[in-house]
Structures are given as structure tokens and as C-alpha cells.
Nucleic acid binder design. Structure first.
Length: 578
RNA sequence: GCGGCCGUGGUCCAGCCUGGUUAAGACAGGGGCCUGCCACGCCUCUAACCCGGGUUCAAAUCCCGGCGGCCGCACCA
């Protein structure tokens, strides 16, 4: 049996996870976490927050799953999360309508409406590339989950496909809470929904998933990472675009310093977080040599991304699977939220000395914008305001126009739209949009991968070798026999450990071996047994999940000993020497 | 969505081709006996044919549709 099947079997049987709505036949793309899975998932989340928030001094927030449509219009998701799809009438295959048009008719399908696409497909005799069949009129498929908010059917809302927009839309307030200083980081862990066309692969491709992400804001003119010294000699297994286009498909191992020098990684902060990601995934029991980072090619990249690396982990049945993404989002999101909301999201940093400079003052002429861009006039004007003046004016002087790219379109700005004045001003500081680097982790995938790497078999039984600080149950307590006062003593020990905050399970059923085996199977690292010697000298045995070795400890010392094991990471063998 | 394979107690599976007793087995689980440290043994109990139609005197079995799973194609910011 494949390892993934064994994991699925174990997950169902022992209550880690299973398919949702089973009694109604199930629904693809949704899973339920059972008692143990819920504990495991939460512990991995806590570990992530500890690493990416607490240790870094960043902030953690919690925003709604649902948002009014304008949020995702601004973020670009309503546009870029949508693809025109056409179906072949003969063979049923689905194709990107705009791609077919470009390939077969050499016409750009970008920004065309469905009717226009359909018309051009028919005019140019575009057909199914596979079977030459006739094509159906294209339809939009959008992966956003749509809903209405409140009783008004025109009040459209969407489920978030990422938690990031909840951070970007709060930027003003968060910057204030960061006491108006860059850089700073804001993290969020939460449920997201994506209406996948055809989810497969159990817990790997879900329609509802939990994402852990960090948005790190920094000054693009000061992009140096001050923590780089800590990681510059760390090794990364990396497959950058440069090598991908050469046809290479095996990652190379380089130090962070080399990766930056070679230009493989464009942002120092991205490199820093990639190292953290590698170490974090390693701490879940997934060895570094089973991970690598692969750069996304420009055609695969998200609309907001300047550079993206995926962190992949080798899994038994599904090959290398993405568990985190490391995107350099430039200022895309803040810029678009600024354009859509009209709020000034720029930060202001004063100069030490005021600077006298010569610059162009660009004044948009409202009437001309309305005439050219109709409903979009306001947003286009805001985009113009965010365009570097020199770039705009130089192009206007040279070409008579400036092609303003934004919001999925290109707007042609001409000399009719603006008044340009050259002025001398004294500037006391700079006003700009911060850049963003985003490490983003799929918690469900990590939970699954953790289970897969913990899985082992010993003497025909399953032992989950989970790292000790993420196991659902920390300690088991067993009486050796169910007589002679042993269960009573064991319950006492159980209560003692519960009182000290440990997650403990008491079990007196069946043979002692069977109870050990049951706990091994769910990864419980320590089992305490109360035997006849306990009644004499108040000591108990502690048994190690991985070695099956035992040590003997006084009950009075038990909480302290366990503390050393779980919090201070003292090795099992050394516990006996305390 | 298309094509291939598949769906039986909590789990893993036999039975289906060739329709017909109380749907077999293993593991897990509950209760009991036993048990001085690794799924011990014995007794006992609980527990299943994905859903809906059709054919038939009779359907887990044959047919149709749906749902779900795996693989391939497509999709996957």
C-alpha cells in the first residue's frame, strides 16, 4: 500500500481527518479534522505564530472571511481570478478562450468581453487544438466564492482566497500601531475559500483551507535586511527561473549569500523568510533534503507578484507539493486599495534636512478624464497621481502620450488629460507606498506532510514519530494491572499532570503492550506506568515512544521532569540523570 | 468537465462475472475472565452492501442516473 493510503487509513481510524459530509456522500474539496487532527493542526499553527510573529516581534490580527466585492475588485481577484473558458463540443475538453485566440489567430484576447471573444473565435475559425471540434461560446470561470451580504441581492460579497487583503485594507491603522515605523510585519492565520474546478488529492487540494501568512512592509529605497547576517551562510535548495529556462529541473544548493549575489532571489527579506520557512518545516520533522524552493515563471505568477518562490516538499503519492509561497508583492496591493478607496495609504518619512528640488507638478483635468474613461475616471486619476512625475512627463514630451498600466488594463494618457507645471519646492520628507514581501503557508498541507514524515512502522505496528512539541497527546498514564490499588494511584498521577497543564490520556483497558501501541500510533511521546514498585517508593516508569526505553522517576519530580522534556527539549536519556 | 478504474461494519477486505439461507473474515472497539511492561490468550457483544430509479417472484450482485474516491487530460493567482 502507498504511504498516503496508510496515512488516510490512520487519519480516518484514529480521528485526524476525514472527508466532510460523509453521510450525504461527501463533498469534494472539504475535510473535517477529528479530535487528534484538530490538536495537531493547532499545535503547528501555534509553532508558526511563535516563529513568525512572537520571535520576530510582529503583529497578529484576525479579520473576516467575507468581504464586500470592492475589496476583491481592488485587489484584482475579480479580474485575475477569472478566466474565459470554452468547451469543445466534440470532445468536451476545456480551454482558455483567450489563449486559443492568441495561438491560432494571433489576436490578443486580453480584456475582451465574452461576446467579443465568441465573435473572434467564430470569425477566425478557431477550433479545438486536440480534436479540431467546434467550440462552445466562452464562459467566465472565477474561483472566488460569491455570496450576498445581508438581504440585498445587489450587495455582492466574496469569501477571501487569501488572508492578505484583510491586512492590506487595514494598513493605515496597522502602520499607526507600528508607531509609524518601517519595516514591520503583520500576520494572519485563517480560513480561506477557493472554488477549485476539480479538487483531488485529499487534504492537498481543498476548497476551504487554512492559510498562515505574513505581510512584511518595508521601504523600497531601503530594502536591506538587517537580519541577513544571521542567515547568509545558510544553505537553500533552490530552482530559480534562470536555471528553469535553461531546461534544468533539479534544484541547486547555494548559500543565501550566493543566491542573492547570483540574482536568484531579488529581495533580501524574501531570502530571510525563505530560510525561516525551511527551518520551520524542518522543525515539523521534514528534513531539509526533502524540501526545495522553485521560482514561478512569469506566466505562472500571480497578478500582484514581482517574484515568487514556492517551497515544495516531497510527498509519497503526489510528488513535490507546494507548502508555502514567498511572493514579492511590490506595492501592488496598497496601490490598488489606494486607487479604489481614495484613502492615502502612503507613509511619510521626514528627511534630516529639507531638500530643495525641481519637479513636475501634474494636475489632472477632470473633464478630460471623464470623457476618456467614463466610470473609471476617478480611479485613473488616482493612478496618475501615483505615477512618478518624471516618468509620466518624459513620456508625454517624447511620445505625446503615456501608457498607464493598472487594474488589468492600459490607459492612454495624453497631453489633453493633464496640466504640467515645473516647480521648485522644498520637500521635508518623502511620501511613498511600502513594498511587501509575503511568506504564505498552507496549514492543511503542512499538517498532512507532517503526518507523512512522522509515519513509521516497527514490529508490524505504526509509530508516529511526531516532534514532541506538536503531538496531540503529550503523556499517557497507565496502571500496570487493574487491581491492587494501581488504577487509583494512576488516576492520582493523571490528575497531577492535568493540573500542571499537560495534555494527558488515562487508559487501563487491555494489556499494557496494547496501550503502548495505541499511544505510539498517535505519536504520544511519553507513557507513564504505575506498577507495584510505585506503591512501595512512589516512583513511576516513563517509557519513550521511539526507543521503548524506560526510566524511573519520583512522582514528586514528574511535573518538573516533563517540563524539561517538553519545554527545554532535554533528551529522553538525559531525563533519567536529573 | 472528459476517459479509465473503484465504492460492503470504525478500518482493511471476501462475495458481484453465473441474482436466491442469518453477507464471510481479519483488525479495531465495548463488557468479562486472565495478565508483574510492548497489539498475549479465552468467552462475549456491538457493527456494513454510497444514494435514487429500473429489470425481476427475488438485487450487494444486472441496467440507468446521481454523489464520492483514485489516476490521466484540463485547471490550479
Amino acid at each position: 500500500m502507498e504511504k498516503c493510503q496508510k496515512i488516510m487509513e490512520l487519519a480516518k481510524r484514529r480521528g485526524f481527518f476525514w472527508q466532510s459530509y460523509e453521510i450525504y456522500g461527501g463533498e469534494s474539496g472539504f475535510i473535517d479534522y477529528g479530535p487528534l487532527g484538530t490538536l495537531l493542526k493547532r499545535k503547528i499553527e501555534q509553532k508558526w505564530v511563535d516563529e513568525f510573529v512572537r520571535k520576530e516581534g510582529f503583529m497578529l490580527i484576525d479579520t473576516p472571511v467575507l468581504a464586500p466585492s470592492i475589496v476583491f475588485e481592488a485587489s484584482g481577484h475579480t479580474t485575475y481570478f477569472t478566466d474565459p473558458i470554452t468547451t469543445c463540443k466534440k470532445c468536451g475538453r476545456k480551454w482558455r478562450a483567450d489563449h486559443l485566440l492568441e495561438e491560432q489567430a494571433k489576436i490578443s484576447g486580453e480584456g475582451l468581453s465574452l461576446e467579443e471573444l465568441d465573435k473572434k473565435i467564430k470569425e477566425n475559425n478557431v477550433h479545438c487544438p486536440e480534436c479540431k471540434g467546434e467550440l462552445e461560446p466562452p464562459k467566465f470561470f472565477n474561483e472566488l466564492f460569491k455570496t450576498t451580504i445581508g438581504p440585498y441581492s445587489e450587495n455582492i460579497g466574496y469569501g477571501r482566497p487569501e488572508t492578505a487583503q484583510g491586512i492590506f485594507s487595514n494598513f493605515k491603522r496597522l502602520y499607526e500601531l507600528a508607531r509609524n515605523k518601517l519595516p514591520f510585519g503583520v500576520a494572519q492565520v485563517g480560513r480561506c475559500v477557493r472554488n477549485e474546478i476539480s479538487p483531488r488529492q485529499g487534504p492537498i487540494r481543498l476548497r476551504e483551507l487554512t492559510i498562515m501568512e505574513l505581510e512584511f512592509f518595508f521601504d523600497p529605497e531601503n530594502p536591506r535586511c538587517d537580519k541577513l547576517v544571521e542567515v547568509k551562510n545558510e544553505k537553500l535548495r533552490i530552482l530559480p527561473e534562470k536555471l528553469l529556462v535553461e531546461g534544468k529541473d533539479k534544484p541547486v544548493e547555494v548559500t543565501v549569500e550566493e543566491a542573492l549575489k547570483e540574482g536568484y532571489i531579488k529581495s533580501e527579506w524574501n531570502a530571510y523568510f525563505m530560510v525561516k520557512a525551511k527551518k520551520f518545516v524542518e522543525s515539523l520533522g521534514i528534513p531539509a533534503e526533502k524540501q526545495f524552493f522553485k521560482e514561478k515563471l512569469p506566466t505562472e505568477r500571480a497578478h500582484y507578484s514581482t517574484q515568487t518562490y514556492d517551497q515544495l516538499v516531497e510527498l509519497s503519492c503526489w510528488g513535490a507539493v507546494e507548502v508555502s509561497g514567498h511572493a514579492w508583492r511590490s506595492n501592488y496591493d496598497l496601490k490598488m486599495h489606494m486607487v479604489y478607496s481614495g484613502e492615502d495609504l502612503r507613509v511619510y518619512i521626514p528627511y534630516n534636512e529639507p531638500k530643495k528640488i525641481r519637479k513636475f507638478l501634474v494636475k489632472p483635468i477632470k473633464k478630460a478624464f471623464v470623457e476618456s474613461f467614463g466610470d473609471e475616471a476617478l480611479r485613473v486619476m488616482r493612478l496618475v497621481n501615483l505615477t512618478p512625475e518624471n516618468e509620466l512627463v518624459n513620456s508625454l514630451k517624447k511620445n505625446g502620450h503615456y501608457d498607464l498600466k493598472g487594474d488589468g488594463k492600459t490607459y492612454r494618457i495624453t497631453l489633453n488629460h493633464v496640466e504640467v507645471e515645473e516647480v521648485y519646492v522644498e520637500e521635508k520628507g518623502k511620501r511613498f507606498l511600502p513594498n511587501v514581501v509575503e511568506p504564505s503557508f498552507g496549514l492543511d498541507r503542512l499538517t498532512y506532510a507532517t503526518l507523512e514524515y512522522a509515519y513509521s512502522e516497527k514490529d508490524n505496528r505504526i509509530v508516529l514519530r511526531l516532534p514532541r512539541n506538536i503531538t496531540p497527546i503529550e503523556v499517557a498514564v497507565f496502571p500496570l494491572m487493574t487491581k491492587d490499588g494501581l488504577p487509583e494511584k494512576a488516576v492520582e498521577v493523571y490528575r497531577l499532570l492535568i493540573k500542571h497543564g499537560f495534555t494527558v490520556e488515562y487508559d487501563e483497558s487491555g494489556s499494557i503492550g496494547r496501550r503502548y501501541a495505541r499511544m505510539d500510533e498517535v505519536g504520544t511521546p511519553l507513557a507513564i506506568t504505575i506498577d507495584y514498585q510505585t506503591l512501595e517508593d512512589n516512583t513511576v516508569t516513563i517509557r519513550d515512544r521511539d526507543s521503548w526505553k524506560q526510566i524511573r522517576v519520583k512522582i514528586d519530580n514528574l511535573p518538573k521532569t516533563l517540563e524539561k522534556y517538553f519545554k527545554e527539549n532535554v533528551g529522553f536519556d538525559d531525563l533519567g540523570k536529573l
